[in-house]
Simulated scan of single mutants.
Amino acid sequence: MIRIKFLPIISVLILALVLAGAGCLGTGIPADNKTAPPAVFVDYHRAGGIAGVNDRLVIFDNGVAVVSGRSTSAVIALNETDIALISALFNQTQFWQLQTNYSAPHSSADLMTYTISYHGKTVTAAETAMPPSLKTVVGELDRILQSVSPQKSAYPTLGLTR
């Protein structure tokens, strides 16, 4: 008989614990604060040369750029003018019509190789086989790399100025 008297009390205590635990979970729906991550705008890699250069520049569509190399690692912010200039240069070169690979007729460890990805298309070009229209794009991307390089003269460019 004693068991029957405690059954309603135990049931009420269990119900109270379940309800108290449910209250801790909250009733609101969490806000969806997720924003889409920035997309890669340009991915530029240059490697080779006598000095053994291995530099990479990744520019995101929000203007943030990540620079990495043997002696450099930095995050910089490009302004809208820089992004617009880069877009214009890619459009002027008709990047989408370029071949995906421009190999040098004779390979050499001293040659620079450039790999550029822009809006899903990748073009790789050896220094001596690069189409003239692509040299302007490479010159601008090299300028950005050099702007954060501690040893500006150690990184060869194609002799282009802005």
Rank of each mutant, 00 (worst) to 15 (best):
L7F: 07
A109G: 11
S103V: 14
A125F: 00
H45C: 01
F90K: 08
K5D: 03
P150T: 05
H119C: 00
T100W: 03
G23I: 11
R56C: 01
L158N: 09
I50N: 12
I14Y: 00
Y155H: 13
N62H: 02
L89I: 10
A16F: 15
S117V: 00
Y44H: 02
I59V: 11
L158V: 04
L15P: 04
R56I: 02
A77N: 12
L145Y: 04
Q151N: 13
T128M: 13
I83V: 10
R46V: 15
S149A: 15
S153K: 15
I116C: 03
R3V: 07
T27N: 07
A36N: 11
G48N: 03
G49Y: 04
E127W: 01
G120F: 03
A154Q: 14
D61W: 02
I10K: 04
P38S: 00
T72G: 04
R3A: 09
P30N: 02
G21F: 14
A84E: 11
A154R: 12
L25Q: 13
M1D: 08
S108N: 12
F95W: 03
A39N: 13
P37W: 05
V66C: 01
Y118K: 04
F41W: 10
S103R: 08
L57W: 00
E127N: 00
Y155D: 15
S153R: 06
S147T: 10
A125D: 06
A125C: 12
P150A: 06
A88R: 09
A109E: 12
H119W: 02
G49M: 12
A51Q: 08
Y118Q: 04
T100K: 09
P38N: 06
Y44G: 06
Q97N: 10
K135Y: 01
I144T: 08
G21T: 09
C24R: 15
L134K: 13
N62T: 10
L141P: 09
Y44S: 06
G49I: 03
R56F: 03
A16W: 13
I76K: 05
G49Q: 08
L98T: 14
D32E: 15
K34M: 11
G52W: 11
W96Q: 11
D32H: 07
P37G: 13
T161Y: 10
E127L: 05
N101S: 14
D142W: 04
I116Q: 01
Y155P: 00
L145K: 04
L57F: 08
G120N: 03
P132V: 08
T27V: 06
N101M: 10
V148S: 09
Y114V: 07
N79Q: 08
I144Y: 02
D82V: 00
A84K: 14
T124F: 01
L98K: 03
V67K: 08
V75Y: 05
H106I: 15
V137T: 07
P37Q: 08
Q99A: 12
M130C: 09
T124H: 01
A39D: 14
P131F: 00
A74R: 12
